[in-house]
Computed example of a mutant assay.
Amino acid sequence: MEGDIGEQGNCTTCAYTEDFSNYWTAAMYFRHENGSYKRVPQYPNAQLGTEGQDAPNIKGGMTIYYSQKDLESNGNMSITAFKPGFRMTVGSPTTTQEGAEANLGLRYTCLETILTRFNETADFPSKPCPAGIMAIHHFPACWDGKNLDSPDHQSHMYDTSLGLFREAGPCPSSHPVRMPQLAYKTMWNTTAFQDMWPEDGSQPFVWSYMDSKGYGTHADYVFGWKGDSLQRAMNDSCMFHGCGSPGVQGILETQTVADMNQCAVEKTVVEDTDGWLAELPGQTMDM
């Protein structure tokens, strides 16, 4: 998809109605001892919740953060919002253990409860997690100020992330423009597989590209906020729901959970993604 995608969509699954950005991570699968696979479902971040007792849950399990400094304050740095046509990726499916351990922005948390937020590891949890697995992706926040993309989708950015939603380090002269610190938290509901854990104790979860260690976790971002909406938010001192929520006036416009859930992309590929699969989608079986 090329150009300003913020002008191409007609609905958004995000709480903020002006956010038409694209957010992507790979799908997670459980690998059974018999060799079959089943896709792991997501569930909503407990800190977002629902609208009320009889209101619907948010579909999906990815929470997006745009921070100016950290989760405690906005700081006093001038933040330049992403531009129409901007895109980037973080991580790589070919990352080694050494590379994964060095990148503090790409981590996993074994959820003891739905509100667990620590500790973080560079690889998949090695034991069953009572409330699932949270995958965390912190993107670089230093831009070269010129290129909306690069051949590898990463060179136009420079990563000074310290992880744990701490303020990223200073930007170098080669990438001097400070942009929002973008982060994804994705909640994977692995609880249905607790009683299927392999008898030998081996870690049974894999990414859709057959990564059983988790070192190759990666994510994609394509900017799509309408007009100057994201820049307005970066210029403001609001935090979290203070930037806008249903029924509360804020710097950003919001929509209800019901409206968010009504937005969906029509399927263009017909495949079984819910049942037990003999192989991961896109893989070829050896005969």
Rank of each mutant, 00 (worst) to 15 (best):
A135M: 15
T121Y: 11
A168C: 07
A219R: 04
Y209K: 08
S212P: 01
A219W: 09
P125G: 05
Q154V: 09
T160N: 07
S150A: 15
M179K: 08
P128A: 00
V222D: 00
D195W: 07
D200R: 09
P125M: 07
D152P: 09
D211R: 08
T217C: 01
Q194I: 12
L148M: 05
S208Y: 05
G169F: 09
D144L: 05
P180W: 02
N235D: 14
L162K: 15
W207F: 14
P130H: 05
S237R: 14
D200C: 10
G224W: 12
A141L: 06
M179E: 01
A219C: 02
M179A: 07
G216Y: 12
L182E: 01
W143Q: 00
S174W: 00
D152F: 06
Q154D: 05
G201Q: 09
K127F: 10
L164T: 09
P130N: 07
K226E: 11
Y221R: 02
Y215Q: 09
S237W: 10
A135I: 10
F223W: 06
V177E: 03
G145N: 07
E120R: 15
A192P: 02
P128C: 03
Q194E: 13
L162S: 05
P125N: 04
L164Q: 15
R232V: 00
S202T: 14
A233K: 14
Y158D: 04
